[in-house]
Design a protein around this nucleic acid. Sequence first.
RNA 1: GCGAAAGUGGCGGAACUGGUAGACGCGCGAGACUUAGGAUCUCGUGGCCCCGGCCGUGGGGGUUCGAGUCCCCCCUUUCGCACCA
Length: 851
Amino acid sequence: MPCPSPANPVSCGMTHPDSAPDLYHPSDVEAKWQAAWEARGTNVVPEARLRSPDRPFYNLMMFPYPSAEGLHVGNIYAFTGADVHGRFQRLQGKDVFEPIGFDAFGIHSENFALKVGSHPMDLIPKNVANFTRQLRRIGGMFDWNHTVDTTTPDYYRWTQWLFLQLYKGGLAERKEAPVNWCPSCMTVLANEQVQGGQCERCDSAVEQRRIAQWFFRISSYAPRLLENLATLDWSETTRKAQENWIGRSEGAILRFPAAGDAGATDGGAAGDAATEGDAASDATNVEVFTTRPDTVFGATWMVLAPEHPLVDRFTTPGQRAEVEAYRAAAAKMDLVARKKTDKTKTGVFTGGHCLNPATGREIPVWISDYVLMEYGTGAIMAVPGHDERDFEFASTFALPIPRVVAGEGDDAATPLEEAYTGPGRLVNSGDFDGMEVDEAKRAVTEWLAERGLAQGTVNFRLHDWCISRQRYWGPPIPIVHCEACGHVPVPEDQLPVILPRVEDFKPDDSGVSPLARVAEWYATSCPACGGAARRETDVSDTFLDSAWYFLRYPSTDVADAAFDPGITKAWLPVDTYIGGNEHAVLHLLYSRFITMALHDLGHLDFEEPFTRFRAHGLIVKDGAKMSKSKGNVVVPDPIIEEYGADTFRLYLMFLGPFEEGGDYRDAGIAGPWGFLKRVWDTVVPVEALLEGAPDPAVERKLHQTIEQVTRQLPELGYNTSIAAMMEYLNAVRAGGRQARRAEVEPLVPLLAPFCPHLAEELWERLGHEGSIFDGAHWPAYDPALCIEDTVTVAVQVNGKVRATLELPRGASEADAVAAARAEENVARFLGDAPPRRIIFVQDRLLNLVAS
RNA sequence: GCGAAAGUGGCGGAACUGGUAGACGCGCGAGACUUAGGAUCUCGUGGCCCCGGCCGUGGGGGUUCGAGUCCCCCCUUUCGCACCA
């Protein structure tokens, strides 16, 4: 092989005289095969096959955000793990589609562009080019003919189309809402992007603002999103995260009628709760959501969120000043302070009262910021005896704390030192006294429901998805605002609404998008009436770009639709999706929602996008998370330069269980490097390989190895599969023995998912035509040949190992006992007497219990 | 606080349904071979030790002939969520 890179001392020491040994030079081998794959289209699924595949396998991995820094080790780890999976499927004869793309819109890119004083439209193509180069270099089986870049009009045209489908389906709505505002990023954040009251990107304290926003009604899909989880083959942790995020809780809406001293009534209750009972029709009811309707007898006051629309109605003139002051303070407070759980409870009495629907007694109505408008009905009944927060509130304001549930050993009069939330029987609850908590929840709800004062309900924590961003770097939302017609969707044949190149795209404190400063862009005519109109100047959330990209990949050549129905039917849903658990909730949930919505709107015939999802682990360095500030970031390029992509891939997969991650140590790469060198030295030169049948012992080991790797690879058991191959090679080379062709040839395809370049090279040298990845070359194993004919049996006396025996497989208990008793050491511990008891596990263990 | 996962040699990590704890690799030690190669190849490598054993999988109990694995209590770490009514 010619040496294209004489500058690289690793790949070749200057020149190769004819007499020089044929050493393993990874950069030569890898350059050769990357070029060959490109020239032959090895990794491309051609149009015809895309339309009618034999055994389609859609191998998806999370596409990267193309940062200026380039691929990091975490990316490579994830992609390699996914690539190993895809290559294994292909070696077994599947038609594997393995695309990659770039998630390049969003605040990340925009903030970076602002920082370096460049334009994202200039930066992104450079970054994409750099990522592409790096991705090719690591040897992924990517189909470069089917790649997406979310920032190209060809792609976001269909993102906008998607918005219009949801709009038409009644799943997109514009509403003014209190939103999270990041003063540093100067943009609205979705609730999901607020972490503990801080911006998940820049950690600034988030404030509240009211802005008109576009929302997708994902909350109306909450029950299905939750129920379907049970049917998915997903990492358990991911499913659990979604389950918690959706946050189903069963309970009841209870209605508390306003008492006589409340302000004038002018209609129904707050919220959008269902039909009202007769008793409630002409009175103001405060609706609360509770999971503990059984404790209603212990509800001795109620609390409204400061923003609750009924606050005015309950506020008496004497309390007005205090209430207004409290509301003003709460409105000004940022969410960090507002949501802090460890601060002492604050609140103000409105002066008004409600009637407890169970006891009929008047109870005071308070407002407090620990009640959130965004959850339930924005109002609660306070049961200090059996709710920790209410207990704390009662303690602060010296309110009475009656007991209505008695746990074991308690009675109706046992004082409460803290809120009791455990099981028990009702007390001080009228006719319900003595009833178990669980039964009482149902019975109390039924009892109140008869009078129109309650209704069993299921509540979800999941909020609607705010997709508006008051930023520049995203797809414009395809809506036109017309004074006469209102919001008018841009007709589909006018898509894409092109994002204009704007040099001044810096957001400002006005709370509107930078596009709102570009009159020549937003000034347009109404598609409905033709009158003067204004384009929506908000762009959409990046999560929308990534919520459907897997639908686009196979259809990137399709110009007139987001995805071709035939191709989509052939390839989707995705067979295996591999990615980071940091997207366990948002990206995966949004993708599921979009797929479900498209299904309901008649565009897809399946409703779950990812049949199988596996979350990979995290790579840490020397026991700590990699970060620039710690200075322990591993830069991949020099390592690949030095050892080659195959060694790097192998090392990453060998570090630890793929789904758990591993600890990267610079020195550790020597193991996989040495292994690949030994593989090479064992096979090359092929003329030196011995012909003939494999040595029986080696052959047994071979079949055991094939069996193990074949079993473990689909389960992503990469580290142990590699260990098995290492063991096998050790067996082949034991004592310096010369390998036979039949012993090493099957090892090449086993290694191919991890080290595709080396495998191709050795495969070719072994005399095969074409790519090892064409033609299902995964080796078969013979279960009969996996079985050992002698086994090592441990001999225990009283549970302690005293000897080991080499016995023929299947040896009887009698034979084993005889052989064991002949062992000097066994006899010493056992004595002469016959054992009191014998435990015999065939081919494994013999335990003699002495009397 | 709630939820999830995990604690095994100097290190990363193995161990199927309870059945020889420490595979594989790093590191380390000894030796061999070397016109020097990132060397390579052997052998060894949990701790203690009277060389027969004893102790050992975060700690403490328990079940069992036998527990890293099962049960109970506790400790620690990581990751989610967090005033969710």
